[in-house]
């Protein structure tokens, strides 16, 4: 679509929405949100971008093939379950590492977080693939 307003707004919104999606994903463990929702938000940002500039440019902006993002996510999710094997627990048991750097920063690293990142990437990758492929499909 050749609309100056859409183009400008999209450039602005795109980064905002993507940042928001990451935020939603990270806060998901304690507040409403998480990998599924974050992924959907990010995917909608990219779909918006492709609506404004076309699928070719959207692919350009992604830099990596969209299915690779999904594959990467699946890999993260699966690998997050393997760590527990070192602790002698069953597959996908959650492990937590909360370093006490100082009082101000509350940092919690865990395998469920890695898993949620995987979900996030899978949702982005798969949905963007479907949308972009449909947009480009020829009769």
């Amino acid at each position: 679509m050749n609309s100056v307003i859409l183009h400008t707004a999209t450039r602005l919104l795109m980064s905002l929405i993507l940042m928001f999606s990451v935020y939603i994903m990270f806060r998901g463990h304690n507040e409403p949100g998480g990998g599924f929702i974050g992924g959907l938000i990010a995917a909608s940002a990219i779909v918006l971008y492709s609506a404004a500039f076309g699928a070719t440019w959207a692919r350009q902006a992604l830099r990596v093939p969209s299915m690779s993002i999904a594959g990467c996510g699946l890999f993260f999710a699966a690998i997050s379950g393997v760590f527990s094997a070192f602790a002698g627990s069953p597959f996908l048991t959650g492990l937590w590492w909360i370093p006490h750097l100082n009082i101000e920063v509350h940092l919690a690293l865990s395998t469920p977080l890695l898993f949620d990142i995987g979900v996030y990437l899978v949702v982005i990758g798969a949905i963007v693939t479907i949308a972009l492929e449909m947009e480009e499909a020829e009769d």
Binding site: V123, A126, I127, I130, E133, M134, A137
Partner: peptide
Amino acid sequence: IVIGFGLLAFALV
């Protein structure tokens, strides 16, 4: 919800 969407999208394609 997400799977239903995946199914619907695939069926549409």
